[in-house]
Design a protein around this nucleic acid. Structure first.
Lengths: 258, 258
DNA sequence: TAGTGGTCTAGACCACAGC
DNA sequence: CTGTGGTCTAGACCACTAT
């Protein structure tokens, strides 16, 4: 039987926090391992001598922390830290484009089986946000490409790309299948040789919509990356906003110490 | 009076989710603005005709999402999205070191007043993790520097740096005040001219300890950055692990499209 | 069918903020 | 002092999983 200690009712910390701490220690000490089932709510009620809602509040804290996950009718389990994906900052290297590999395929190499679904392509008036990032005048149109990326059939990333309409109109960029090497390969064929990317990385909690589309458990944050591609004239030719399931990603960058 | 609609008891969605959605819409439509007080729990109980725990579960979801924050005895408020800090990837540029500015001071420029506290410096046997990242043999010692960074007296980042003992011992790196330009300036003075940095960025929920030291509201994720500095021989000479309050940061990187 | 977690009620006492 | 949110109890019924 799992050793969990007792609640000290005279202590300052509320009972549910003491229970949560006790379970945290059971995990960090290895008495509970990833995938293991935590004692049921009624077992915890008996063990600690508290009401069900007190136990549930402790469990809610640990779920929000990302330590536990609940399965209705089955039990509460210690989350296993999934194998993370390392994304080298050379994932947009020209050699990949020349080999016909779009970035997501390049980073999937040796990790799992990549796929894409929920693809939507169309043209629209750019939002203020997108317009400013691409340096476009008011009421400019853009070709928008939205899609969801999956690894081994598990959704891991949502992406929205925007290319100025004047560049993309009538090209494969505005079609559902943008062809080998992805839209960066198409941009270069159109004479927009790429010189530089900028990326802005941040983290936040997902919206309910994002949680649904990425099938995220509660208490899981997302990484957001906004990437802008510049051609050799220094003109922004493309913007991609991605929302990534944080536990699936480590982003790797290298830069010189000049 | 704020318009919030009603709960449909015949609907599939549980009452607390409908209440949460109703409040989300009030915020996204602008009927509730950042800083505004949400109706009190008793007002929501009356309005929706439910028990207090049902209202509280809706509010708990919205806190975990980062949309609301509670203040004991005062009320529940819509969180204001704080001003974010942009961190150029040139924050480690040699020119800053030559001007005597450590990285955190450089990035604070024009943003706020930076400070540092909870400084601990000492030598210890490197953990497996640190040892492997720095390419050190078993039982190697390192000089460890731990501290907390604040902006306008608000904690925003925890940092732990490690330098191999054979490099740092007897130098200013092992002292509490590492001098102008920080430890990177000292490493270069010692002949370890830096050539490259690598950074690994990820996001997760904070541990309770991190939440306490960063004074994070519940439902706020952290960004973690592991940076390794390489000298001109390609040797790893320093590792820094940082834990940043996610809402305070946007990390910016630029890299060539080679 | 038994056991699990999910939702909900109707109370209670407490600590904190503001008047 | 009143009103707020924080903690807790002792029940109840439901939906889901496994046997």
């Amino acid at each position: 039987m799992l050793e969990l200690g007792q609640v000290d009712k005279s202590a300052d910390a509320p009972a549910f926090k003491q229970i949560a701490q006790s379970l945290r220690e059971a995990v960090s000490s290895g008495r509970l391992s990833p995938g293991d089932r935590v004692p049921s709510e009624s077992q915890l009620m008996d063990h600690f001598g508290v009401a069900r809602m007190t136990v549930r509040q402790a469990l809610a804290d640990l779920r929000a922390e990302g330590l536990l996950r609940s399965e209705h009718g089955r039990g509460v389990f210690v989350r296993d830290r999934p194998v993370v994906r390392r994304v080298a900052s050379d994932r947009f290297a020209r050699r990949h484009r020349e080999e016909g590999q779009a970035a997501f395929l390049a980073e999937a190499e040796g990790v799992g089986t990549p796929s894409v679904d929920e693809i939507e392509v169309g043209s629209e008036v750019a939002s203020v946000d997108v317009r400013e990032a691409l340096g476009l005048p008011a009421r400019s149109k853009v070709v928008a490409r939205r899609r969801r990326y999956l690894m081994d059939n598990q959704p891991v990333e949502l992406a929205q790309s925007y290319v100025p309409y004047v560049i993309a109109n009538g090209t494969k960029i505005a079609e559902r299948d943008s062809g080998p090497g992805g839209i960066y390969a198409r941009l270069e064929e159109l004479g927009h040789l790429l010189s530089e990317f900028s990326e802005e990385v941040a983290a936040r909690m997902p919206t309910p919509e994002e949680r649904r589309r990425l099938q995220l458990p509660t208490g899981t944050p997302v990484l957001t990356v906004r990437r802008i591609a510049f051609d050799r004239n220094g003109t922004a030719v493309e913007l991609t906003d991605t929302v990534k399931a944080a536990p699936s990603y480590i982003l790797e960058y290298r830069f010189p110490a000049v």
